[in-house]
Design a protein around this nucleic acid. Structure first.
Lengths: 402, 402
DNA sequence: TTAACATGCCTAACCGGTTTGGCTATTTTG
DNA sequence: CAAAATAGCCAAACCGGTTAGGCATGTTAA
């Protein structure tokens, strides 16, 4: 009875020791969060490696599982490539059997598989994203365009990333760079027009982009702008039609091509009717000191000895600011002075008097821009698409309609 | 003289043959656009492989070179990892010599190296992007918030991706999904409030997000909203202060918590002053048939036997539409009926009479939302940040100020 | 009967970064 | 003078997809 007992106890001892070794081992793995890998070191030796599980892997376990191609691959014992092909709808083309396809699609749906767009973008070399850069997204004009662009882009599976430059050249440069870093496939830019250099660079690099609202006359690019000269021309003609003889123009300091064109439209039309009186009726304001300069401008137009009887404002913002000043001076609109705004605002009909405006085809600008851009994304074009869209005069009481 | 000649010609022949072989070889490479690889096949044999150059690689050659870590690595004979570390500013920490660091930084700057954000996002598991979902970006209220959010986010190195839902539950769901697919790090949502399910899912998955403007009272989340009840309360009190006894409320059909709160503020305040007349003075309109219902609502408030002498509009849009109807009926504001708008618009001072409004702290909403979100991105919080921001009454003539 | 073709799936490179865990040589310490 | 510490860098796995090319196996045509 002695011998067997001793053997038994020896077994128990060994068993216990093994058990503890296992415990320590498992503990080690859990404590340091490592996974075990068997690896051949190249010289024929096999190594045991305790690989650290990445933190990302852990975070995912906490949240409800986001599954990846690899996960599906492991569960279904089907290679990643086959799964990728099937889920991209190229299963038939690549001769994957119906059975396998069904199995994959079923599993993917059940587990709510969603491809990681970063990974996809990285490997496909494109991100299905287009960048939109505007001076100020909180300006209704641009936000309406943005909305339109977003809607249209979505129909083709694109996402829009946007940013506002605040009319700063540096910001615009930074933003373009940032968007390129994010691998956007194309850009739609309402440029500050102080940044010809970047635009030329984009063009030289054959990067797809479309300028909207503002374009660089010296650079041949795609663009969608409105017929600015034609717009102010309509405005001036309307005032002339009402019998106004001395028509003022309140605009911004030159810098934007659009603004220049609006001035040209004003001048040419007045000349055509023999009513041009030189630059004395033209007030070019600095956007940075708008309030103060507007006051002076309006006073000068309204109270000088050669006072005007009509004013065209070059932007919707100038119109509202100008209107505030006109109110302060108790000018009677349209009897003393009739006004027309280049650019509409939704509330122009609510003001007393309702404001006549040259309306820009906002929706069309957005639509065209996206169309042109998408065309360019599909194939590199050798020609440039340049659109001048027509404006539409909406006549209200501020220029004499009853 | 014979022998040497034969040897010479033999050399020349061999040389020519070799030369042609090389030519064919080079030609092959160029024609099929392959690059050559030496590869060990695992069984110890070395294989020569003609690897097809990927199309992406070719496209890059066409455009001005975008350089990658690998490019730098090859030129400088320094490993990718070292370069990555140095360019991320962790060179000192990781004990990379000053020399090497300088060399890398110099090269990177000279060649204008820019890391691919998709690749970085993929490997870091975050994209430095936040998603913004609003009902309608072309609504000034949201576009102003968007601008603010964008600015604030940029200061912390984040980009904003935005989209509009158009108040559609399905769209909202799709957009959230899309943004998750794009691996946004967090979301800011002005929800349609028909989508509690998704919000709960996000919450359960511990995904960082902040609701703005509209929150779900039944779900505990981060949010930034305004004190809606307090807002209408101020509006009603102002009307009462003017001696108005019968105050109407034009609002939207229930659905949004914010709208419900505004109604509560209206009711409670009237009750407090003993002026509550029940729901007959409350008009709840359907946004889908706003024009037509607004007409009826205004007629009913203005022309019935118990007509009101003051109206509070629950949103800025209702105010402008209501105003149009009031104009049609030639109602005198504020003498016959005084009005107050919940929500301001930039042009309210331009209208005749200028509109009194309950102003929402738009900038603050954006700022707070970003602050809270960024906090949550840095560390998972266990508590929720819930902000009720104060509104401010801006009194103008429409409710009796001179 | 054998070559040619079709079927069905897999292997491994690749996109462009980040990060961990060494490895080697030099310097410091005992 | 050996051991330990430090400096300085690298190799390779990894993120999660896409894609070209290839390899069995079965079928058909010559």
């Amino acid at each position: 009875m002695d011998q067997p007992n001793r053997v038994d106890s020896l077994f128990i001892h060994m068993f216990l020791i093994l058990f503890f070794i296992c415990l320590i081992f498992v503990n080690y793995i859990f404590t340091f969060k490592r996974q075990i890998l068997l690896i051949e070191d190249g010289k024929g030796k096999i190594c045991l490696i305790f690989w650290k599980i990445s933190q990302i892997g852990l975070a995912k376990k906490l949240s409800v599982k986001k599954i990846s191609l690899l996960d599906i691959s492991e569960k279904l014992k089907i290679s990643k490539s086959t799964i990728s092909i099937v889920l991209n709808g190229r299963g038939d083309e690549k001769r994957v059997s119906k059975e396998t396809q069904e199995k994959i699609v079923k599993y993917a749906n059940e587990h709510n598989y969603r491809p990681n767009q970063l990974a996809r973008g990285l490997s496909r070399g494109k991100s299905e994203t287009i960048g939109l850069i505007v001076p100020n997204i909180s300006d209704t004009f641009y936000s309406r365009i943005a909305r339109r662009i977003e809607r249209k882009a979505r129909l083709s599976g694109y996402t829009v990333v946007y940013s506002s430059t605040g009319e700063s050249r540096t910001r615009e440069n930074e933003l373009i760079q940032m968007m390129l870093d994010r691998q956007v496939d194309g850009l739609i830019i309402a440029s500050t027009q102080k940044n010809q250099e970047d635009v030329v660079r984009l063009k030289n690099q054959q990067f797809p982009f479309v300028l909207i609202d503002r374009h660089y006359p010296d650079v041949e690019t795609n663009f969608v702008v409105v017929d600015n000269a034609g717009g102010t021309s309509k405005a001036v003609e309307q005032l002339i039609k009402l019998g106004k003889k001395h028509i003022g123009f309140v605009t911004l300091k030159p810098g934007l091509e659009a603004i220049r064109q609006r001035l040209i439209g004003y001048e040419e039309t007045l000349k055509k009717y023999g009513l041009y009186e030189g630059m004395k009726n033209v007030k070019e304001l600095d956007p940075d000191h708008l309030d103060c300069e507007m006051m002076e401008a309006i006073k000068s137009l309204v109270q000088s000895t050669h006072k005007v009887d009509g004013i065209v404002f070059a932007t919707h913002y100038l119109t509202t600011q100008g209107l505030r000043e006109l109110r302060k001076l108790s000018v009677k609109i349209p009897h003393e002075i009739a006004i027309v705004s280049f650019g509409q605002m939704s509330f122009f009909d609510l003001i007393e008097p309702p404001i006549t405006s040259v309306n820009q085809p906002v929706e069309e600008i957005g639509d065209k821009a996206v169309e042109i851009l998408l065309d360019n994304l599909v194939e590199k074009k050798l020609t440039y698409d340049q659109q001048y869209l027509k404006t539409k005069l909406e006549i209200r009481k501020s220029c004499g309609k009853n």
